[in-house]
Design a protein around this nucleic acid. Sequence first.
DNA 1: TTCGTGGATTAGACAAGCCTAAATATCGTC
DNA 2: GACGATATTTAGGCTTGTCTAATCCACGAA
Lengths: 218, 218
Amino acid sequence: MLTRSEEDHLKAVYTLLQEGDSASTKDIAHRLRTKASSVTDMLKKLAEKGLLKHEPYYGVKLTAKGRSHALQLVRRHRLWETFLVQRLGFGWDEVHEVAEQLEHVAYDKLTDRLDEYLGKPGFDPHGDPIPDRHGRIRERKTHRLSACATGEVVRIAAVSETTDGLLRLLDAKGLRIGSQLTVQEVHAFDGSMDIKPKNGSAFSVSKEVSHHLQVEPA
Amino acid sequence: MLTRSEEDHLKAVYTLLQEGDSASTKDIAHRLRTKASSVTDMLKKLAEKGLLKHEPYYGVKLTAKGRSHALQLVRRHRLWETFLVQRLGFGWDEVHEVAEQLEHVAYDKLTDRLDEYLGKPGFDPHGDPIPDRHGRIRERKTHRLSACATGEVVRIAAVSETTDGLLRLLDAKGLRIGSQLTVQEVHAFDGSMDIKPKNGSAFSVSKEVSHHLQVEPA
DNA sequence: TTCGTGGATTAGACAAGCCTAAATATCGTC
DNA sequence: GACGATATTTAGGCTTGTCTAATCCACGAA
């Protein structure tokens, strides 16, 4: 059994490794609003429990066991988000916090029943894939909007769930998961780009914004 | 903000005061599977936070603030139990533990939305009343089956939710919340009684069992 | 190659919650 | 009213998870 704090650290490691190529002590600390020294302690502990390999000063890698456990957390988190949006009528920009708490309720039967109740959804309200009970994820070939070239026509596949401001911005522009858009122009000097939604008027987004938008070919 | 442990202690106090007339340090400790000395510490802490009055050696009383907080916990617990049984198809004998965890997720909007989603139920699957968002409880005039006399015809109103064995026994006998039964005979020497469900054959229940069954006049 | 810098770790302190053992209080009974 | 049984509290210690401050290490620039 893992404590809540252990689970938080494990998930942070998993998420950072997903997003980039490494999970630095500093980044984990920042994500968990704690200090680097606390993270080092916890990494040591998780390593002892066989959930990850910790090479001091070099970095951290998840073991199969650690990855599996992290995937369960991700699964629960995304199922609860789906429940909150689909059934309780929450906005997709207000469910993260709550799911962050609900994900720690560890009871397989509950998770599986919830999964069935929601119709075994493949993706959560932000477009992120929901691992099945074995931790398997439905893979898609998405890329960042920021990596798109002028003229590309794409569909929004997913949005970083931790970016509430972005979620509200998309809402305001009428964009949803699945919305199509065309890249009209990419500005080299600041990485911003002009995009035109299929049924709407064009506007400009910063590099920051386009970085957090996952898209797939339309 | 209360910690999980503080909430557990507060709810234990509330529940014991509901069930009997006092909440002894010993009983709280027993209920929380902890030791009396730990409970004393926590009572001191809750008293400092203004949730209860603690007269050393004499006992404990909830303040309005403490009662209100406890009622929120009870509300969340019973709403989740209702959700688990009504929507996820759990048996009423297997939801207590899980609800015990879910009740600590404190987020008013979630609680209220869940309440609406379930149709603002007045009672949970065990027949216990669910406090509304203001902590108000729908009162009924129930009494214990063990207090019934020969010949009384009653309806089952509620069953102590912590008694899994009893819940399964009732299931096995085909009894539900709302089932009618007649008290056929009360045996003075051990307090056991013979009861006959409206649509079933008579059987005998121990004093222990009849003590945990709340009934109302049929 | 050497050094400076910033990230990572260690050392040591602290609060929260829990425990055991010892001291203290209450209460029913004689 | 004193005594013994039982409940309660206090004293002191342990573990967990956090922190700050100090130290250690890697790595890129000169």
